[in-house]
Simulated assay, not measured.
Amino acid sequence: MRPRHPPRSPRASGSREVGRADRLAHRGPGHVLPLLMTGDFNVAAHGNPVYGQLLALSLKDTWDAAATFHGYRPLVPDGDRIDWILATAGVTVQSATINMYEQRGQYPSDHLPVQVSLTLA
């Protein structure tokens, strides 16, 4: 049986993501559009070189204190946040929350959904 999230080299997959973000962020003069990059990156945000490279491309983290991976166990405050929503300067974030929905202790996923209310410039 294949694992749900096959192990990947964070460096290899991260390089691909950084390349995509760089191409989208630098589409040339007159092509300034708000950009959102969302995903299950399967690595904690802070201290990760890929996360740092994406922020260096002028992407900002829409919520810097959310723990989204709970592994079907109680949420750990300030735990690893592996689901990111990054945005360019053309995005104004009003709020960010984590959807804590569960029914009788059962969660629909091992990730808690990140929800952001925002305005595109």
Score class of each variant (00 low, 15 high):
Gln103Cys: 01
Ser58Cys: 02
Thr38Leu: 15
Leu33Phe: 07
Ser95Lys: 09
Phe41Pro: 14
Ala65Pro: 02
His31Phe: 08
Thr92Trp: 00
Thr38Asp: 05
Ile98Asn: 01
Arg23Thr: 06
His26Leu: 04
Gln106Arg: 13
Ala121Asn: 10
Val18Trp: 03
Gln94Asp: 12
Gln115Cys: 14
Leu35His: 13
His5Asn: 12
Ser9Met: 06
Arg8Lys: 12
Val116Thr: 09
Asn42Trp: 02
Pro108Glu: 03
Val76Leu: 13
His46Ile: 01
Ala96Pro: 00
Ala21Arg: 03
Gly90Arg: 05
Ala45Trp: 01
Ser13Val: 09
Ala45Tyr: 08
Gln53Gly: 01
Leu59Ser: 08
Arg81Trp: 00
Tyr72Glu: 12
Ala87Asn: 06
Asp64Ile: 04
Leu112Trp: 03
Pro29Ala: 15
Ser109Met: 02
Tyr72Thr: 04
Arg2Phe: 09
Gln115Arg: 11
Ala44Phe: 01
His46Ser: 09
Phe69Thr: 07
Arg16Lys: 05
Asp78Cys: 06
Gln106His: 11
Ser95Arg: 12
Arg81Asn: 11
Arg27Glu: 15
Pro77Tyr: 03
Tyr107Lys: 15
Thr88Glu: 03
Tyr107Ala: 13
Ala66His: 10
Asn99Trp: 11
Leu120Phe: 14
Pro77Trp: 07
Ile85His: 00
Ser9Ala: 06
Gly30Asp: 07
Val18Asp: 02
Arg23Asp: 06
Val93Phe: 10
Leu24Thr: 06
Arg2Asp: 14
Pro3Asp: 09
Leu57Ser: 07
Pro6Asp: 05
Asp64Ala: 07
Pro49Met: 10
Pro10Phe: 10
Ala56Thr: 01
Trp63Glu: 02
Ile82Lys: 03
Ala45Val: 07
Arg81His: 08
Val116Ala: 10
Leu35Gly: 03
Phe41Gln: 14
Gln106Pro: 00
Ala44Gln: 07
Leu59Arg: 08
Ala67Asp: 09
Arg20Pro: 00
Pro49Tyr: 10
Asp64Glu: 09
His46Arg: 14
Asn99Phe: 11
His31Arg: 12
Ser9Cys: 12
Thr92Phe: 01
Arg81Thr: 02
Gly71Asp: 15
Ala56Gly: 15
Pro10Arg: 07
Leu112Tyr: 10
Leu86Cys: 05
Ser109Asn: 02
Ala96Trp: 04
Asp22Val: 00
Ser9Asn: 15
His26Asn: 15
Met1Leu: 13
Leu55Gln: 11
Ser117Trp: 10
Thr119Trp: 03
Thr38Ala: 15
Val76Phe: 04
Ser9Arg: 12
Asp61Tyr: 04
Ala45Cys: 07
Ser95Met: 02
Pro49Ala: 14
His70Phe: 05
Met1Asp: 11
Pro108Met: 04
Asn99Ile: 11
Arg104Gly: 05
Leu55Arg: 15
Thr62Ile: 08
Asn99Val: 13
Thr97Trp: 05
His70Lys: 08
Glu102Asp: 07
Asp22Glu: 12
Leu55Pro: 02
Ala89His: 13
